[in-house]
């Protein structure tokens, strides 16, 4: 994952000094799997192992959620997000929400 600003999941930015903080920023993305992927995953489920289709789906979704969070931070004039956390939750049958949040800060 690459972002236009610094993102860490620690409270500090190693090598930088946090001078200002603005508040919590969030990003979300809800995705549903499509029938084709579901069928392939169903077959794979028989033998176990990685469900590649789902890995990709959730990864794309997480990327988007984090991207939105960063967009919020940028709209506040921040140049870093610290203490990043991800949460994944099942919202409805076959749909999952990827949620990312952190604190928008300015580092020097």
């Amino acid at each position: 994952m690459q972002f236009p600003i610094i993102v860490t999941n620690t409270e500090t930015v190693p090598g930088r000094q946090i001078v200002e903080f603005y508040g919590v920023v969030t990003g979300n993305s809800v995705r549903a799997k499509h029938v084709g992927r579901d069928i392939m995953a169903g077959l794979k489920n028989l033998v176990g192992g990685e469900l590649k289709g789902y890995t990709e789906l959730l990864q794309e979704s997480r990327q988007e959620a984090a991207g939105r969070m960063v967009e919020q931070a940028q709209s506040m004039g921040a140049n870093a997000v610290v203490n990043l956390r991800f949460a994944t939750s099942s919202i409805a049958q076959g749909a999952a929400e990827l949620f990312a949040y952190g604190t928008a800060v300015r580092v020097e």
Binding site: I18, V19, E20, F21, Y22, G23, M76, A104
Partner: peptide, 9 residues
Amino acid sequence: MRFTPRLPR
């Protein structure tokens, strides 16, 4: 560290 209240867009 200074707190500057701002809301995201």
